[in-house]
Design a protein around this nucleic acid. Sequence first.
DNA 1: CTATATCAGATCCTATACGATATTATATTT
DNA 2: AAATATAATATCGTATAGGATCTGATATAG
Lengths: 228, 228
Amino acid sequence: MTNAAAREGRATGIRPMSVVDGVYDSIYHRLMSLEIAPGARIPIDVLARELGVSQTPIREALSRLEREGLVRKEHLIGYSAAPQWTRKQFEDLYAFRLLIEPEAARLAAINMTPEALQQLENSAADMGHGEAPVDRNTRYSRFARADAQFHDAILKIAGNDVIRSTLSNQHVHLHIFRLMFHTRVTQEALEEHENLLAAFRARDPQGAYDTMRVHIERSRDRLLSAFE
Amino acid sequence: MTNAAAREGRATGIRPMSVVDGVYDSIYHRLMSLEIAPGARIPIDVLARELGVSQTPIREALSRLEREGLVRKEHLIGYSAAPQWTRKQFEDLYAFRLLIEPEAARLAAINMTPEALQQLENSAADMGHGEAPVDRNTRYSRFARADAQFHDAILKIAGNDVIRSTLSNQHVHLHIFRLMFHTRVTQEALEEHENLLAAFRARDPQGAYDTMRVHIERSRDRLLSAFE
DNA sequence: CTATATCAGATCCTATACGATATTATATTT
DNA sequence: AAATATAATATCGTATAGGATCTGATATAG
């Protein structure tokens, strides 16, 4: 029964995992894998039949995805996957990141502890090597996830929770992931992450600030080619 | 019938206004007026009975409010109004605003047009005078709303939609409104807004940047007293 | 051949019902 | 009297049903 399959996920705590969580994950991965294309309709009852659950949890999961900007809703028409980014949205986001993340890197360098540094090193190591990716899709998918984790770890060390939740809600990396299909990025990004780590090891706030700024600017320029 | 009352709101477009929208507004105003206290439980079926609608739209409205940080949800326990801010959350938010809004003011000064300036002037004028407030509650409530509109207008002129939606989702002003009950703020803020307008009239980007920074720092210091 | 009108199917939105879980009050034991 | 155990109530989470609206196709008129 699909119901049981959705529920069996990770029931970490004592509480039983809600059906909504399973539905959320399922839709999230369909968006991530581009199985649901940008702009495509997402009918509630079709999903309900496919997942073997009722419409109520589907509704809540989609509502949650809407708040994160991954799906859109039109009254009396229904839900659909968010359309591909426009160039302006892309540029606005990077202008925003340039305001936030260099300063966050500076704060992180100030607050850096040996334990936090070790976690960052591990996170960065995950990006480079790992089992061989089976196809282009899973390769980029894993890269995007690891990149998100790396940047979030820095924000966590910086210690400003408002900034951290704000950026994670932007779900930057899912959208970027889509763009990556049209470009090549991984090698340079890895080197820039290594530069960041060097600044953190040296406990150099200004260096971390500058390095992060350069990293984001280069990331922007690399991805800009996706808009021709 | 309460159902009809909820629906009668503003049905501006051709589309009938959804029940969810009415429920959302109702709960929002109850939070704004402190009729629902910070931290208080919000039982779904009690609300459903009071508003004369079923539980499904209540559920969706609460989900929407959760994304905006106004209510919290615990699995198998239920919804409750977001607790009063801690000092750390408050300081994190203002650190965030200091990164964003001065730069937004700078951009707004660059993009300023006569029409945009006129709208800002009107918005600022709304804050000063208006019909006499009936009580302390509605006076602060109107002030908070007008202040939010003024700051949002600047962000709109700055032109970065990512930044604008991010800040409006923070619902800064609702929470600040609560704090204002414990302090007095209006007169100084009005003068600082006037200083901002002066910089915009002069098309002075650097001046707008500096003035906004001072404004936010002072706003922070004024409200900090609410934490003793 | 194009454009409008009508109709059937799909989908959304809301209401209601019921099992599962948490919370509170009562009773029992130490 | 304090603490634990048990039962009753309140509330949540999910499933299902039906009315309302939209979408797309077919038919008809110009």
